[in-house]
Design a protein around this nucleic acid. Structure first.
Lengths: 198, 198
DNA sequence: TCTTATAGCGAACAGTGGTCGCTTTCAGTG
DNA sequence: CACTGAAAGCGACCACTGTTCGCTATAAGA
């Protein structure tokens, strides 16, 4: 980047995005934790200390990625949530989109998701906060379903967490029992049958 | 320990146990990842390098703890599984015991469980392997329930993972919605209603 | 043309997990 | 009772980590 000219907030954000994607392949190959700041800097074509002008520490690089991704996913889910469909149908649609997002960047996302659990507690909380936004969206839909009388009167927060956790455990679980779509299908069958009024 | 006299396999195991529990409090206070090998050695009253005579690296200290705990829990579950009760009842009983174990060492277990996710991939796999033993037990019970005709013909492996994952997410989730027992109860309600023939 | 703000950098730093060779101790052997 | 060999334990050391800091190069604006 030009040296003498200050960057606007936007340009900084763009640069962060750029830097991350320059390095993504390395993360994919070596994993985040196993990639040192030296290597990251090298892959980004920067001096090591320059990285700290864009990310305040190593963890923040991953946090950036997840916040970015979760922003997109939440936005997408919000659109679906506003459609004029049964709570049930909207929930299924959201979970499908959720799975799609996971699979779009497939290997990268999977890998980094795993690694995100190794972040420092503070960084994890940052990501959690963003995740709660998503969780609350699901929760609201379940509440709606309860009000509409299609779901039993379950604890919606617990159910929302259960739903999201179920998908993740189905997709990330190392002992796969079919394609992700199939596993999602089976998982949702159990979940919805569990909360629907039968 | 006496210097000139070699330790038997058993004495080594006992020593490992001893060392771990000497340090447990430090882990509880500072967390595992934030405790350096220097501090661990100090808390155990040993030279740093002596630790490596008992654990082949830092991760192995945590791995030891989980393998130990999982051995106990699997054994306990096995006993319940052999009882002459419905698959349903045995599953509920096992999950209760599971929760009990989690709560026995409560804070320590919770803390270390969180931290276990930050182990190196290889170490995580080691723990996973032990976890699979437990998972398979649950799975067999679900299969039994299916054969008996009380459960639907669900994918038992997926259901087993779902069940265990559900409990964990209920207990470890940071946004609690009641006592662990209550949350377990609600979770099981959803789960069993999801897989039972209604 | 000079000033000033700042992007970028290399060297240095404290602290990490891990290794190695030495010392100290004692059981067993002659 | 010496002597020897095995091994528990240790301190010094190592390579490497994420992070900080002061310097340099640069270009916009006065």
């Amino acid at each position: 980047m030009p040296k003498g000219i200050p960057l606007t907030e936007e340009e900084q954000a763009k640069r962060r995005h750029e830097i991350f994607h320059q390095v993504a392949n390395v993360f994919l190959k070596k994993g985040f934790q196993e990639t040192s700041m030296r290597e990251i800097a090298e892959a980004a074509g920067l001096g090591k200390s320059t990285l700290y002008d864009y990310f305040k520490n190593k963890d923040e690089i991953l946090v950036y990625f997840f916040e970015d991704q979760l922003n997109d996913m939440t936005e997408e889910a919000q659109k679906i949530a506003m459609q004029n469909l049964s709570a049930n149908a909207r929930l299924r649609q959201i979970t499908e989109k959720y799975l799609e997002s996971l699979q779009a960047n497939k290997s990268l996302f999977l890998k980094l998701m795993q690694e995100s659990q190794r972040l420092k507690l503070e960084s994890q909380k940052q990501v959690q906060a963003k995740r709660y936004g998503y969780q609350d969206l699901i929760r609201a839909l379940i509440d709606e379903g309860i009000r509409e009388g299609v779901f039993r009167n379950v604890n919606s927060l617990l159910a929302a967490r259960l739903l999201i956790g179920s998908i993740s455990s189905a997709v990330y679980g190392s002992r796969s029992t079919g394609s992700p779509q199939e596993m999602l299908q089976e998982t949702l069958d159990i979940f919805f049958k569990g909360i629907e009024i039968c």
